[in-house]
């Protein structure tokens, strides 16, 4: 007899909650758009925030409510934009693919340190401690905040304390640029065309030469040499417009400090040096 009670009681409680849940599902149903699910599937799912929303989910919801642009996903690039456009049944302009680039070549060999830092191995903390241990206030501290910020493992710390960007893995989300306390990392168009000034220093020439062997002093030799007029000055720093640069290489010859390098070679010296160091 007791077993009958047990079965009825437990079954009753189960049925009661089942019924309640069923009713709740009906009465408290929240109408959700099935396209949100589809868009979320199409997104990379890294929740990097490059679209200016908290995560892929929020971005998907924002698209449905027609607030967000369809090509807002930078890591996803053109493919994701097309996929979302297909779901929404609209046309879309392609996003220009960008990658992160580290605008500093002042590694342990070329740039001077002010003092030896024994603190927490974090760029933000090092920056707060007497404004950083490097003689150059705009030089890379090399403690790897950018490496840790990258959700795609596209940045690694090079052998001499400068981060290296793997262009094939970089999606251009810009999280590393935000993580850098010295704003050394900037986003540039994908590819290896053109030359760039690999320096972020805003110091006067004399200060630069005292702290770094490869820093841009703002001597304007490259500006005068460039036949395309692609190089302009921003304060004491030369900046090359990649749209105008035709890869002639005259600026490299004129630069006495070696701050300018073609993009295809920018990663090569570090690699070559690491080989030389190990040999």
């Amino acid at each position: 007899m007791q077993i009958l009670f047990a079965v009825i009681a437990l079954g009753g409680v189960g049925a009661f909650f089942g019924l309640l849940l069923g009713l709740a599902a009906r009465f408290f149903a929240v109408p959700t758009d099935s396209r949100i699910e589809a868009i979320r599937e199409a997104l990379p799912g890294a929740n990097c925030g490059a679209c200016a929303y908290a995560g892929c989910n929020q971005y998907a919801e924002a698209i449905i409510e027609e607030r967000a642009p369809l090509n807002g996903c930078i890591p996803g690039g053109a493919m994701t934009a097309e996929a979302i456009a297909a779901i929404m049944g609209e046309e879309v302009d392609a996003v220009e693919p960008v990658v992160a680039a580290v605008f500093c070549r002042g590694d342990q060999r070329h740039a001077r340190d002010l003092f030896t830092y024994h603190g927490i191995l974090d760029c933000d903390y090092a920056q707060q401690f007497h404004g950083g241990f490097k003689a150059c206030p705009d030089g890379c501290l090399g403690l790897g905040n950018c490496v840790r910020a990258c959700p795609f493992e596209a940045i690694s710390m090079g052998p001499r304390g400068l981060p290296l960007v793997d262009q094939s893995a970089c999606t251009g989300c810009g999280l590393c640029a935000e993580a850098c306390p010295r704003d050394i990392i900037r986003l540039v168009p994908q590819g290896d065309q053109g030359h760039l000034v690999w320096c972020s220093s805003q110091q006067r020439g004399k200060t630069v030469t005292r702290s770094c062997e490869v820093g841009c002093t703002g001597c304007r030799a490259c500006v005068r040499a460039c036949p395309q007029e692609a190089i302009s000055m921003e304060g004491y720093l030369a900046v090359i417009d990649l749209q105008k640069c035709d890869d002639c290489g005259l600026c490299v010859e004129k630069c006495r400090f070696g701050s300018i390098l073609p993009r295809r070679e920018s990663a090569a010296p570090a690699a070559a040096e690491s080989e030389a160091a190990s040999a």
Binding site: L10, V13, F17, L20, L21, A24, F28, V30
Partner: peptide, 18 residues
């Protein structure tokens, strides 16, 4: 166990709406 599981599910559905 049954009651807790049912309850949490119920509360979740309820909260989502209200």
């Amino acid at each position: 166990i049954l009651v807790i599981a049912g309850l949490v599910q119920l509360v979740e559905t309820f909260l989502r709406k209200t």
